[in-house]
Design a protein around this nucleic acid. Structure first.
Length: 831
RNA sequence: GCGAAAGUGGUGGAAUUGGUAGACACGCUGGAUUUAGGAUCCAGUUCCGCAAGGAAUGGGGGUUCAAGUCCCCCCUUUCGCACCA
């Protein structure tokens, strides 16, 4: 048996990957410390994963992006927290369980086992000792604890109202979970139902949630804009109109008090309770009743589809405008939303598009009270659309002549003084409806007692465990309601017979605080330790899909702020930097989903090409924020690079064990040596910057260039040669960890490459000695000249003027000026 | 309809701040070697042109010595919101 020369052996990725995964496990390489130095730590988090089967290329991409950053930060000397866990409650588990006749917990557990195995196989740098599972009592006990804290502060409450109901899933939905009038999970058209449900008072935090977006410079603008619009803060006034008969006040919200003299009718939402109290004349009562009935069964999309085509009915009643005592008709119209403002609007047809359309349809007068400017008047007879811009007030008594914001202020101030109006801020954001009529979720820790009302389960009795039942078919109320052993309990307050709340929580509740649990995943006396949280928070980098822009990412910020107010956590925001990944589509451009049956698993790629090559190919395809159409085509080039260039690099190591911190003096190097030394330092700089901004594709390109330009036979200096080999290995480590670790050990290091320090570039050696300067004539490139790097204008000019190509253009022409940018261009402007 | 982001070779994509557009790859073409495997090596490859040269970053205008990058208008695509008074 002959000894194999290890420097000549081929790239056996399978052996290498298995070997290092085993070693990493044995060394506990990814175990995060309990209490890191806050200045030397990095919290890398990828969004909570729903275990829907096995992971596919989309997940894989997400996790390797986080993984590369985590490894890079380790090499920066940071204590890294890179945890993983499962958002394990939720509807798909119930659906699958029903289909297969097994229990949701079994299905979930099986998926977790499979997915975890794939992630471990992929060698992602998770600290598995902190793994969490939101469907386990040891986790959801603290979800219930959060609920109780919110309840104590009056931020978890029950109310009756019209809610979004998904007839397919047979449960209610939060506003954020309705997309296009349809259920975000199953695409069924959502209905309206009048029900009592649990809410979290997220609106209490609406101002902060919108203001603090300014404290997040490293969040994408698109996400911040979406959140701002979702929260939808607006400034306006609330003005009390009066019902003529009864004298009852009818407050309305408006952002345009300056148009108040143009009100020609009032409109109220069909859902408005006020309508029940009005005693309508018989000739109107029946029409109004029918209209309300019809409006209530219309789905959100039907109502929205009618945009432009407005309808409504006159109630026969009148309201009085407090500014001028004018009497205007009171209508019911379904373009008025019950859930916004006061559910009633003052209609100004001349200056509001919707009111204009409505007035035209029902022949209601149009009264102009704003002119575009002093010299332009509007004629209600000839207007074919509303004038909605700001302008000069007219026909408005004492307010005539006022303009824009000043007008608004004066009109509102007047109402305030007279006591019939006030400044008012309104939000589109609604309270978060968190109760669900489903089995597979976190039980709501409340007991309903006839005597004491809604009584919180005492902390000592947590968790309220989800009973393991067989029948969890959804039927419109929680399946738990049919489990007497669960439902019937003693009231914690009076000891009398009482019943548990049968609902479970929205799974977004589970995922709104999981990031806190990771800092102390096994604490069984508190949700987490405050000191540990203060050391780890805020999250340095949070990566996930843009789909969570207005749902999870608002809830997550809300819970953080709530816990901050309770003194549990520091800082106003949970995550410093957010990066939204592009989606991974299949070769046809369709997004991968289980229901479409087009999920591409990473495993076959691991087998055929190796994990590191699969990673590099995925990284190389596109920068992080951009979507990827994965067809595996980038593998070809990347594989060539790995097997022919990167892996064989070790053959050129000469065993000099150089000092990695040393800088080489240019005068000690030959021309070829100098040039590769500069290339090395440029590459160190580029790759570091590329990784920081998650442009792994260009980092790989830079590495390819370095390896391409490296010609060992032209390097006599052993220390330089070996520095290049070693640093190239380090530079590749975050991207191709197993391979780098193998080469690193072959160089002779005994500790992991991830414990080594990321190379620092020699700032004296990032510019080549000779550089090309572009010479332009009137902005057009005519030639380039090669000059010493720090040449000033005169040197470059001399070289440029010596060029025949340049002379051809300048001959006989007048040179007007020359623009010189050091190290880049010389532009000669001629006439 | 409103809002946001984006349009660069045959393809994926480069071009941190206005300064040599097309890095790095894929693919393709030619050649070499070889000839079973999706092999290797060399050369070429934005377009037009024999060349000199010209044109070119969705289209049109503008600012500037200089524009993929900044400004205005338009078109297309993707995403988000959809009567928020």
């Amino acid at each position: 048996m002959s000894t194999v020369d290890k420097s000549q052996r081929v790239y056996d990725f399978k052996a290498i990957e298995e070997k290092w995964q085993k070693k990493w496990r044995e060394q506990n390489l990814y175990a995060a410390p309990e209490r890191p130095d806050p200045d030397k730590r990095f919290y890398m988090l990828e969004m909570f994963a729903y275990p829907s089967g096995d992971i596919h290329m989309g997940h894989f991409r997400n996790y390797i992006i986080g993984d590369a950053m985590a490894r890079y930060q380790m090499m920066q000397g940071k204590a890294v927290l890179h945890p993983f866990g499962w958002d394990a409650f939720g509807l798909p588990a119930e659906r699958a369980a029903i289909q297969r006749n097994i229990h949701p917990s079994e299905w979930t557990q099986k998926n977790i086992t499979t997915s975890r195995a794939t992630l471990q196989k992929a060698g992602i740098s998770y600290d598995w000792s902190r793994e969490i599972n939101s469907s386990e009592p040891k986790y959801y006990r603290w979800t219930q604890w959060m609920f109780l804290r919110l309840f104590e502060k009056g931020l978890a409450y029950r109310k009756r109202g019209f809610v979004n109901w998904c007839p397919n899933d047979k449960t209610v939905l939060a506003n954020e979970q309705v997309k296009d009038g349809k259920c975000e999970r199953c695409d069924t058209v959502v209905e309206k139902k009048d029900q009592v449900q649990w809410y979290f008072k997220i609106t209490e935090y609406a101002d902060q949630l919108t203001d603090d977006l300014d404290k997040l410079p490293d969040w994408p603008d698109s996400v911040k804009t979406m959140q701002r619009e979702w929260i939808g803060r607006s400034y306006g006034a609330e003005i009390d109109f009066t019902i003529e008969d009864t004298g009852e006040k009818l407050p309305v919200y408006t952002t345009r008090p300056d148009t108040i003299f143009g009100v020609t009718f009032m409109a109220i939402a069909p859902e408005a309770e006020l309508l029940d109290r009005l005693e309508l004349e018989p000739e109107y009562a029946e029409k109004v009743r029918k209209y309300r009935e019809m409006a209530l069964v219309r789905s959100e999309i039907e109502r929205a589809a009618a945009t432009g085509e407005k309808d409504g009915v006159f109630t026969g009643k009148y309201a009085i405008n407090p500014y001028n005592g004018e009497k205007v008709q009171l209508w019911v119209a379904d373009y008025v939303l019950a859930g916004y403002g006061t559910g009633a609007v003052m209609a100004v047809p001349a200056h509001d598009t919707r009111d204009f359309a409505f007035a035209k349809k029902y022949d209601i007068p149009v009264k102009v009270v704003i002119h575009p400017d002093k010299d332009t008047a509007l004629d209600p007879e000839t207007m074919d659309e509303a004038f909605t811009d700001y302008g000069v007030m007219v026909n408005s008594g004492q307010f005539d002549g006022l303009v824009g914001s000043e007008a608004i202020k004066k009109v509102t101030d007047f109402a305030e003084k007279q006591g019939f109006g006030r400044n008012k801020v309104n939000f589109k954001l609604k309270d978060w409806l968190i109760s669900r009529q489903r089995y597979w979720g976190c039980p709501i820790p409340i007991i309903h007692c006839d005597k004491c009302g809604a009584v919180p389960v005492p902390d000592k009795d947590l968790p309220v465990e989800l009973p393991k039942v067989r029948n969890f078919l959804p039927k419109g109320r929680s399946p738990l309601a049919d489990v007497p052993e669960y439902m019937n309990v003693k009231c914690p307050k009076c000891g009398g017979e009482a019943q548990r709340d049968p609902d479970t929580m929205d799974t977004y509740v589970c995922s709104s605080w999981y990031q806190m649990r990771y800092v102390d995943a096994h604490n069984d006396i508190a949700p987490f330790d405050k000191d540990k949280a203060s050391r780890w928070f805020p999250i340095d980098l949070y990566v996930g899909g843009i789909t969570h822009a207005t749902g999870h990412l608002i809830y997550f910020r809300f819970l953080h702020k709530f816990m901050r107010d309770l003194g549990w956590i520091t800082g106003d925001e949970p995550a410093d930097r957010l990066v939204c990944l592009g989606m991974v589509a299949d070769e046809k451009g369709e997004t991968m989903s289980k229901s479409k049956g087009n999920v591409v698993p990473p495993f076959p790629y691991f087998e055929q090409h190796g994990i590191d090559t699969t990673r590099l190919a995925m990284f190389f395809t596109a920068p992080t924020e951009k979507g990827v159409q994965w067809d595996g085509s980038t593998i070809v080039g990347v594989k060539k690079f790995v097997t022919k260039s990167l892996f064989p690099l070790i053959r050129h190591y000469r065993g000099s064990s150089p000092d990695l911190k040393q800088h080489f003096m240019v005068e000690d190097l030959t021309k070829d040596e100098r040039s590769i030394y500069v290339k090395l330092n440029q590459t160190i700089k580029r790759i570091g910057e590329d990784i920081e901004r998650l442009q792994y594709n260009t980092a790989i390109a830079a590495l390819m260039e370095l390896v391409r330009d490296y010609q060992p036979d032209k390097i006599a200096n052993d220390a330089l040669n070996d520095c290049i080999v070693i640093k190239a290995i380090q530079l590749s480590a975050p991207l191709a960890p197993h391979l780098a670790e193998e080469l690193w050990s072959e160089v002779g290091f005994s500790e992991s490459v991830f414990k080594s320090s990321w190379p620092e570039y020699d700032p004296e050696a990032i510019v080549a000695e000779l550089i090309e300067i572009a010479v332009q004539i009137n902005g057009k490139l005519r030639d380039t000249v090669t000059v010493p790097a720090d040449s000033d204008q005169s040197v470059v000019e001399d070289a440029a003027m010596a060029s025949p190509k340049v002379q051809k253009y300048t001959e006989g022409r007048q040179i007007i000026k020359k623009i010189f940018v050091k190290g880049r261009i010389l532009n000669i402007v001629i006439k």
